[in-house]
Amino acid sequence: MSLQINATEQIIKIAAITLTGRLDAFEAPALRKTCDAFIANEFSHFVFDLTDVAMLDSAGLAVLVSVLKRARLKNGDVRLVWPREEAASRILKLTKFDQVFVSIEKSEIVPRGF
């Protein structure tokens, strides 16, 4: 039996989003809008580079959670480059989302393979 080759094109769309500044209730709607657009365009994987996020509140967190939820529905995932600032990482630890979001290094933003 000859080898059957059934090749399908696997296109995984990864959105790499770098954020700088304060991600709070005021800025959250803009991020949500951006993410909504990616999801509508069949993006299922998201990398948020939070390195330079100065502060993160529950409204900002809610956007990340919302994106994670929808990504998972498409078998996708959300990964985070951990913020340098304690003011940004604090809420992730408090809410235990540090155990939910997979954290990666900044160098891993461009994936070497899945």
Binding site: S58, V65, L68
Partner: peptide, 15 residues
Amino acid sequence: PAPEDLAEGGYGMAI
């Protein structure tokens, strides 16, 4: 809220 529930709100007062 438990993180695995992926609730999109209700964190504020708890925080």
